[in-house]
Simulated assay, not measured.
Amino acid sequence: MAKTRTHLAELDPVWSRITREAEEAVRDEPLLGGLVHGCILHHATLEAALAYRMAQKLASGEMSEQLIREIADEAYRSDPSLGAAARADIVAVFDRDPACHRFIQPLLFFKGFQAVEAYRVGHWLWQQGRRDLAYMIQMRISEMFGVDIHPAARIGKGIMIDHAHSIVIGETAVVGDNVSMLHSVTLGGTGKEEEDRHPKIGDGVLIGAGAKVLGNIKVGCCSRIAAGSVVLHEVPPATTVAGVPAKIVGEAGCDQPSLSMDQMVQGCGGSKD
């Protein structure tokens, strides 16, 4: 058994850690045994666990749990990048959210992570031309999590959405890798135009709570948008913007704002132990 676990850890260290933490959680709190076994320990892979959890959360009288699970299983089988992105997202949440102490927490409890992984399946459906089904998934994500991400939006890996209440990401929005955002962020348009109309967020950007980024504008890599800001113009890389409307107030303060999660205008330090 020890040899098997060592081999598993080498092949998939994220899933190996999740299963180990799940076993510890059952020992510590037996009343959660049904949840933990059903969501994690009954599955052989992270992808299978994600499909099961998504089906549990999004099922309704309009679409059964079994059907949603089959759709998600198909997506994960067809596109290995979905599972790779989920692993990067789990590590991102653990590294950046001080309230996250174990890898199992995003999978079991954090609606920001769950919404993003469900969006990824909806985006896969969109790319397959199955638009109505993608819209169905979008609707259920919005109803269950309070997160509205258009399935056509393009979102990178290593994403952390903290609290994840009232997040809106529009149809032509692009979000790079290793982006962090807090609740009530909007990546929206500015009117009724139908073409490319939503923001393009670079890698490593930190977007504070309640910030609105509107229009087909670029937010440069490793920049910071202060909480409550309304961004209407391009943001250069490695800068901090704040205000309504947002203006440049300084440099980003560090190489990776989205990793440090420092939202103070002065400085950009600190990390999770």
Rank of each mutant, 00 (worst) to 15 (best):
T4M: 08
L8G: 05
L8P: 06
I18V: 15
E21Q: 12
E21C: 07
V36N: 06
G38M: 00
I40A: 03
I40M: 00
H43E: 09
T45Y: 08
L46R: 00
L46Y: 02
A48Q: 14
L50S: 00
L50C: 07
M54T: 13
L58P: 02
G61Y: 02
E62G: 11
L67D: 10
R69W: 01
A75S: 03
S78M: 01
L82N: 04
R87L: 04
I90L: 15
V91G: 03
F94R: 09
A99Q: 01
I104F: 14
Q114N: 05
V116I: 15
Y119R: 02
W124G: 01
G129R: 01
D132L: 15
D132A: 11
L133H: 10
L133A: 14
M139D: 14
I141G: 05
S142M: 15
S142F: 11
M144L: 14
M144H: 15
A153N: 13
I155G: 11
I155F: 12
I159S: 02
A164D: 00
V168T: 11
G170R: 09
V174D: 04
D177H: 12
N178P: 04
S180V: 05
S180Y: 05
G188N: 05
G188V: 12
D196G: 05
H198R: 03
H198N: 11
D203A: 02
A211E: 01
V213G: 09
L214W: 02
G215Q: 01
N216S: 13
I217G: 11
C222H: 05
S223K: 03
S229T: 08
V230M: 06
V235R: 10
T239H: 06
T239Q: 04
T240W: 08
T240S: 13
G243Y: 11
A246I: 11
A246F: 11
G250D: 06
A252W: 01
A252E: 00
G253M: 09
C254N: 04
C254V: 01
D255K: 03
P257S: 03
S258D: 04
S260T: 14
S260H: 15
S260D: 07
M261K: 03
Q263I: 10
G269A: 04
S271L: 07
S271E: 05
